[in-house]
């Protein structure tokens, strides 16, 4: 962590009380991801401005604590305001960041375990929440459902359900776009909005071998999911 960033801030950030039924808990990993995205993409200064705008009373989200979902929502709103970006575009950028930023190489590798090509990967998406729980038992991601509509055409439903993960579909679009690049596939993605409880994403795979993808070797030494930044 940087010197300017008070490393002990999170020490005072009280994790939410589990007995408070009015608080919707959000896993710190999600909150922390949002913070890292903002810091790594726009810099420490902008993050501090956003944190102030969101009226955070601590300096850093901690990946292994829980937070009130409303606090995280405030950060999303503040970031949108500060960066003059729509919420949807911002969330999609978070998804792209998760796969493409060097700090997240570990996560990209975990996603590549999904399959040997992009089709294989798409078919493994339904396993994603389960795989995530294998790694972090209390991290609940929305259930995903993949339907083939025509050859090369898929419909991905993302059952965000609880309000705290609304917009997760946009993050997913960013992730899918970046993973398609990673596999070297040419795909067209379209977030069709919410259909009842679910967000629906149209996926058209034009070509799986469009470009040379990035390499993925099982034997590579697993890098940490996120090294400590020296921003």
């Amino acid at each position: 962590m940087s010197e300017t960033n008070n490393d002990y801030g999170a020490f005072y950030a009280v994790p939410i009380h589990r007995t408070d039924k009015w608080v919707i808990e959000m896993h710190g990993l999600i909150a922390r991801t949002l913070q890292c995205f903002l810091q790594d993409t726009y810099g420490q200064g902008i993050w501090q401005t956003i944190a102030e705008l969101a009226k955070l009373d601590f300096d850093d989200f901690e990946a292994m604590l829980d937070y009130d979902a409303r606090t995280v929502e405030q950060v999303v709103d503040a970031a949108g305001m500060c960066l003059e970006k729509s919420r949807d575009a911002l969330l999609e950028d978070v998804g792209t960041y998760l796969i493409t930023h060097p700090n997240n190489e570990g996560l990209r590798r975990l996603m590549r375990y999904g399959g040997v090509d992009f089709f294989d990967f798409l078919h493994s998406l339904e396993d994603l929440p389960g795989r995530t729980r294998l790694a972090v038992a209390d991290l609940q991601l929305p259930e995903l459902e993949l339907t083939d509509s025509a050859p090369g055409q898929f419909l991905l439903s993302c059952h965000s359900g609880a309000a705290e993960l609304a917009g997760f579909g946009f993050v997913l679009v960013g992730v899918l776009r970046a993973m398609a690049d990673d596999y070297g596939a040419l795909v067209i993605l379209d977030h069709r909005g919410a259909l009842g409880e679910a967000e629906v994403i149209d996926i058209t795979v034009v070509e799986t071998d469009f470009a040379e993808g990035r390499s993925f070797e099982l034997a590579a030494a697993p890098p940490p999911i996120r090294r400590e930044t020296t921003s």
Partner: peptide, 15 residues
């Protein structure tokens, strides 16, 4: 996958 995921989660915890 599990080995990599676990070490990543452990790293976050150690941090």
């Amino acid at each position: 996958y599990l080995v990599e995921a676990k070490s990543a989660a452990m790293e976050a915890s150690r941090t």
